[in-house]
């Protein structure tokens, strides 16, 4: 955890520094001297202080807990990475392609990734889930979902 804490602390400091730097470009209120950057600057300073404490603690060997290292050969890690890619693709495709096709494909892929090998389930379940979500949101609650390619049919 020592290395992780040091990296975490550094990220915290960088975020804080960025917030302060960006805040310094914001206009100042002439009357009160308290402008848009007042609150963020205080918060960023406190974030930096706690990040420093975390780093110092880590260097003194006082880090708590342990992390299991990520190994690419691990099946779980592989599944995690595939899920990550699938999730990103899903989100990007959602608007241009539309909710119904994207969700059906995503669900089927993910079921396979998660170890489902029953063909009947793979064919029946994804459309079923997708359609029931779509019906509830689009038809019952009148909240529109991205239609995408199906815009002229729906």
């Amino acid at each position: 955890m020592k290395k992780a804490d040091i990296i975490g602390g550094l990220i915290g400091i960088l975020i804080g520094l960025y917030a302060i730097w960006e805040g310094s470009n914001m206009p100042e209120d002439v009357v009160m001297k308290i402008g848009p950057s007042f609150f963020p600057t205080i918060l960023a300073s406190l974030l930096i202080i706690f990040s420093l404490v975390l780093i110092v603690n880590a260097l003194r060997g006082k880090s708590k807990g342990e992390v299991t290292p990520l190994k690419l050969s691990d099946k779980g890690v592989q599944r995690g990475l595939i899920t990550l890619v699938a999730a990103i693709v899903f989100c990007i495709a959602l608007d241009p392609i539309g909710f119904i096709p994207t969700a059906i494909v995503f669900l089927a892929c993910m079921m396979w990734v998660m170890g489902n090998r029953k063909p009947m389930l793979m064919i029946v379940v994804p459309p079923l889930i997708t359609l029931s979500i779509w019906l509830i949101f689009e038809k019952v609650l009148n909240l529109s979902m991205p239609a995408g390619l199906l815009i002229d049919i729906l």
């Binding site: 899903f90 669900l107 998660m114 379940v125 979500i133 979902m145």
Partner: peptide
């Protein structure tokens, strides 16, 4: 879980 977990993700996005 193989059905529930992906479904939670889709539902979350929706």
């Amino acid at each position: 879980r193989a059905i529930l977990t992906p479904a939670i993700f889709v539902l979350s996005c929706v």
